[in-house]
Structures are given as structure tokens and as C-alpha cells.
Computed example of a mutant assay.
Amino acid sequence: MEQRTVLVVLFDGVQSLDVTGPVEVFTGATHCLDDADGAHRGYAVRTASMDGAPVRTSSGLTLVPDSALADAPAPDTLLVPGGTATRSPDPELTAWLRVHGPRARRLVSVCTGAIRLAEAGLLEGRRVTTHWAYCDKLAKDHPGVEVDPEPIYVRDGHVATSAGVTAGIDLALALVEEDLGRAVALTVARHLVVFLRRPGNQAQFSVQLSAQTARREPLREVQQWITEHPADDLSVGALAARARLSPRHFARAFQTETGLTPGTYVERVRVEHARRLLEDTSDGVAEVSRACGYGTPEAMRRAFLKALGTAPAEYRRRFHPGPAPATAPGTSTTHPHR
């Protein structure tokens, strides 16, 4: 198998991690394959700026490209990172993308790199995402683009877009898994000490980040307790006792300060924890349900259907192709109608 060329576009004001994160993933995959059999497979990663000159990143680092864009090899994957420079138009780069973008087998953006692709007319009619702070701008400036502010990355045909910064690593790992298989992607993830990959439909914020942090210390401690002990008794009465408040006072104060009822917060934490276990372990559905505080696998199934529109067993199959771990008797694996 010949190496696939990944061309990363550089420009002044680029976000350095938008570049280096995916580059580390793609080069890591290549090293993994080279170490396995000594053959040169995987990816040939190249960087290029408009004129071939070094660029200064938004954090002040200087990156030296391999070449000017005019001299760069035709890419299999064209990757456009984000950065402060994307807040202003760049007619020269936009013109280059408009001509060369359609020639790539796969178009990828990290963070606000989606703005550059949209300016070049490459996202029309596509479902995309970008950094949460710029989703409204992208949607307003380009009404022909369907902007989804929730996921960390979105795949729509040959176009793949991701949210900010570290989400580019998740997307790159997903692309490596698609190209070279799960084993290679897992090896790279282990070297980088990250999850194999967060699923693309995972929210840009975890429950803890999306909910407000309580101002009062007892309530903040309860929030942390819920996160660290999803299998414990997390009823309003038990949580109120931990906060040393009456159940009624606790429920009212918790919702006022976090924006969520205690029950909703607990349910979201448990679903998030269950998703991670299903993605990253081989534990059976029954075992996962116990670890996440669900009384039965059926209770977890109902929670998944409500939150994600799919059953736990079907959700796991997206991340573990092949025979799935055994489910508890009576636990349905049928994908719900949508």
C-alpha cells in the first residue's frame, strides 16, 4: 500500500495544537507500521504555507513549512487547521482552497479551519462543526452550511470537521482507524496517552463542563462526588445529606446553581460514564450497568434510548466491530426506529 499524503496548511496565527495534534497522530501511525514490518506505509505528512515562509502561531511558536502551497504534492487528505487568523478573510488562501480542495480525496478541518473551507465554498450543503465559540458565526456567514454545535467532530461524505484543539486528535484517530484499522489507531492512542477516540457525537463539553459549577462549596463537593461515585446511592435524599441540607432545600439550590435538577445531572453523568466503559473496556452490558448505578441493564437501556437514541449493545458495536460482549438475558440489542 502506498503512503497517503496528508497536506497541512499553515498560516500566520494558526493554532499550534491544531497542527501538531493531527500530525502526531498521522506520523505515529506511520511509525507504527514501519516498526511492524520495515515497509514505508501509512502517511507522508507535509506542511505548506502560501509562500513557503515560516509562520508564527497564535501562541508565538514558529513553524517552518516543507514548501509553498504551489509546490506541495497533491494530497490525499487536505487538512486546514484553525487559529486567530481565521477571524479575518484571506483571499489568497481561499482562492487556493477553492481550486485545490475539490481535488483531495478527503477534506479535513480542525477548529475554525472550517471557516476557511466555508469561505472557499467547500462546505455548501454539508453538516459540519467547529469550535463552539464560532458556530453561530459560521452559520450566520454561510447559511448554506448546516452547523451542528454539539459534536466534537462530524463526518459528511468526504468532508470531516472537528471542534476546537484536542478534538482534532480525536478526528485524526478516527481517520487512522478508517484507513489502517483499529489496532493501529489504538497503538497510536496509547503512545499519546489519550482515549482510542472519543465518539464524534460526544458533546464538546462533558457534563461537568456543560453544567454550571455551584458557587457554594457543599454543592461543588456533591457535584464531584456524583462524578466519582456513579454507582452509589445518588438519590436526592442521599445527596442532600452529603451537602448537609434538607432534600427540598438541596434540590432547589442545586438547580439554581448548576442549571440542572439533581436527577438530570446524575442521569447525564451515568450515561457519560457508561459510554466510556462501553467504548474503552470489554465489560458486558450487565457489568457496565452495575458500575454506573443502574439497577438493571434494562434501566440503562432506557437511559441510552432517551439520551442517545440507541441501545447500549448497538452503541458498543460502533466501537468494537465483531462479536459483542454478551448482554444480560432480556436485554434488547435492536436499534430503535428514528
Rank of each mutant, 00 (worst) to 15 (best):
F11D: 00
E298Y: 12
G181W: 12
G164Q: 05
R46S: 04
L192H: 05
G181N: 13
L175W: 08
V154T: 06
V8M: 15
P54T: 00
D283E: 13
R301S: 15
R242A: 10
A44S: 09
A211W: 04
E217N: 07
E279M: 14
R182M: 10
V207G: 03
V19S: 00
F304V: 02
G263I: 11
C292A: 13
L107D: 00
Q15F: 12
R270V: 05
A74Q: 15
D283F: 14
R182F: 05
D170C: 04
D179G: 08
D90C: 07
A172M: 08
A68F: 10
G259W: 04
Q15D: 14
G181Y: 11
G28Y: 01
L79D: 06
V184R: 01
I115G: 01
E124V: 01
T30A: 05
V6F: 08
A303N: 02
L171F: 13
S289C: 12
V222D: 04
H229C: 05
L260Y: 12
L61K: 03
L97Y: 00
R155N: 09
G284Y: 12
T112P: 15
G21S: 09
T213S: 12
H40P: 09
V99Q: 06
D18C: 02
A39C: 11
T187M: 04
Y43T: 03
G293K: 05
G181F: 09
A238N: 03
R242P: 05
Y265M: 02
A174P: 03
Q3W: 05
Q3H: 07
G101Q: 02
H40L: 15
E257R: 10
D18V: 01
Y265W: 06
R338G: 07
L305P: 11
A189S: 14
T213I: 11
G168P: 15
G322A: 10
P54M: 00
G82W: 05
A163D: 11
A303T: 01
R252I: 14
L278Q: 08
T264V: 14
A120F: 01
G263Q: 14
P54N: 01
P65K: 00
I115D: 02
P312L: 09
G237W: 13
I115R: 03
A44P: 07
A39V: 13
L308V: 12
H131S: 13
D156L: 10
D179F: 10
S210R: 14
A48L: 06
V99Y: 07
R276V: 09
P65N: 01
Q223I: 03
E150C: 01
E267P: 07
G309F: 14
S332G: 07
T112Y: 13
G38T: 05
R244H: 13
V110T: 07
V80C: 08
D12S: 02
V271N: 04
R103G: 06
G21T: 07
P312C: 09
L117R: 02
R87T: 09
R56Q: 06
L180E: 15
S332A: 11
K140D: 15
P323C: 08
